[in-house]
Computed example of a mutant assay.
Amino acid sequence: MVSRVVFGRGSFNQLGDIIEPKRVNTTAPFIFLVDDVFKGNPLITSRLPLAYNDQLVFVSTKEEPKTSQVDEMVEQIILNHKDRPSGIIGIGGGTIMDLAKAVAIMLTNEGEAKDYQGWDIVKNAAIYHVGVPTISGTGAEVSRTTILTGPQRKLGINSDFTPFDQVILDPELTVGVPKEQWFYTGMDCFVHCIESLKGTYLNAFSQSYGEKALELCQEIFLEDTLSDEDSQDQLMMASWHGGMSIAYSQVGVAHAMSYGLGYLLGIKHGIGNCIVFEHLEEYYPEGVAMYKAMRKKHNIFIPQGICSNLGDDEFDIMIDVALSLEPLWENAIGKNWKQIITRDKLKALYQKM
């Protein structure tokens, strides 16, 4: 679990006070990885507690994070600074959260990021790292994974060293998120809840978080009782609770198949989950019906026909990626999932998308 959390409007102003005691020395900088959408935006940039040799790096989030991108960042940090950084501060959406966690890990572990894609491969603790989400839904601020697209697969660095040491949850930072992005990322949280609560890995701990997150999602996306500020606060809490739920259980069919779309077609995670979830009535009938009611209420467009021109080889690539995520399938279907989830079944589902 994340050991330290601050929540509240304006809490981003506490960042300097929070990180300064963690400064190793004046030549060991804090590296701020910030979504480049905030370049020139005083909401973030004028409030960053930069000092000494601290470095601000704006990062494009047009594409999903890659293992090669992590390796390049780590190399540049090592080349540009005499001392190992005091910490990594990630400020942005799920992409930035994952990059910050991965960079913090790779500064203390040899090799390349792709070598650590999987479960519990990391040997050395990451350097101090802080997450400041500016959009709610991914749960990346709380999860023990960092989802990366590697040369052969899309898979997280799942380890006890991955979670942030500190998270700052300031709902004010989510103001101005475009409506469709708000929905896609919010649905990532919603799907977390459905897949956790309907999974075979479910336990009392994950269930308590998943049920609360689902309750919040229903209030946010189906009811008209919340002010804008309350909705922002609630979605940030839903994201946290949804992330906690899957941290102690697992996700399922939608995420496994979404990773295939992301690896081959570069479809971003939130919208990828929506594209897949449209066709999963067989596995999550109540959840899919609720999702479609949310989509209709908010008049959100979901891309159609993205797989219509793919060849057999391309379908095979997506299927291989999806099937490699064995814990997700076991959670969704059970230990006998390999007898139920066939390549033909997955291909037929992808062909609907």
Rank of each mutant, 00 (worst) to 15 (best):
G334V: 08
S324N: 13
L323D: 06
M318C: 08
Q339M: 10
R343W: 02
G334L: 11
R343L: 10
D316Q: 09
D312L: 12
D320Y: 04
G311Y: 05
W337T: 01
L346A: 08
L346I: 12
A322W: 05
A332S: 15
A322Q: 02
D344Y: 04
K338M: 10
N331M: 03
E314G: 06
E326R: 12
K335F: 10
Q339K: 13
E330Q: 15
W329S: 07
K345L: 14
S324A: 15
I341A: 07
D313K: 15
Q339S: 14
G311K: 11
P327T: 05
D313F: 03
I333G: 10
V321I: 15
D316G: 13
I333K: 11
L346G: 07
T342E: 05
K345V: 01
L310I: 07
K345W: 14
L328P: 01
E330G: 05
L323T: 07
L310R: 07
S324G: 11
L310G: 05
T342A: 08
E314L: 01
R343V: 12
I340D: 10
N331R: 01
I340A: 12
N336L: 11
K335M: 13
A332R: 04
F315N: 03
D312C: 09
K338I: 07
P327G: 02
F315K: 03
M318R: 01
T342Q: 10
T342F: 06
W329A: 02
G311L: 04
E314N: 06
Q339D: 15
M318A: 06
W329G: 00
I317M: 06
G334M: 07
L328A: 08
G334T: 07
I333M: 15
L325E: 10
R343E: 14
R343D: 12
E330K: 15
I317T: 14
E330T: 13
L310Q: 09
E330I: 14
I317A: 03
L323H: 05
K335T: 14
L323A: 09
F315R: 04
N331Y: 03
P327L: 04
L310W: 01
P327Q: 03
F315A: 06
I319Q: 01
N331V: 06
I341Q: 10
G334F: 01
A332P: 02
D312E: 15
P327E: 03
I317C: 06
I333T: 11
G311D: 13
S324V: 06
D344Q: 14
N309H: 13
S324Y: 08
G311M: 04
M318I: 06
Q339P: 00
D313W: 00
D316P: 07
L346Y: 05
I317H: 06
K338V: 08
I319M: 09
W337P: 02
W329N: 10
I341M: 15
I341H: 09
G311P: 03
I319N: 02
T342C: 09
E326C: 07
A332C: 15
I340E: 14
W329V: 03
Q339F: 02
T342N: 05
L328Y: 02
K335L: 14
I341G: 00
I341W: 08
E326F: 00
R343Q: 14
G311H: 09
D313R: 13
A332W: 00
I333N: 12
D312P: 00
S324R: 11
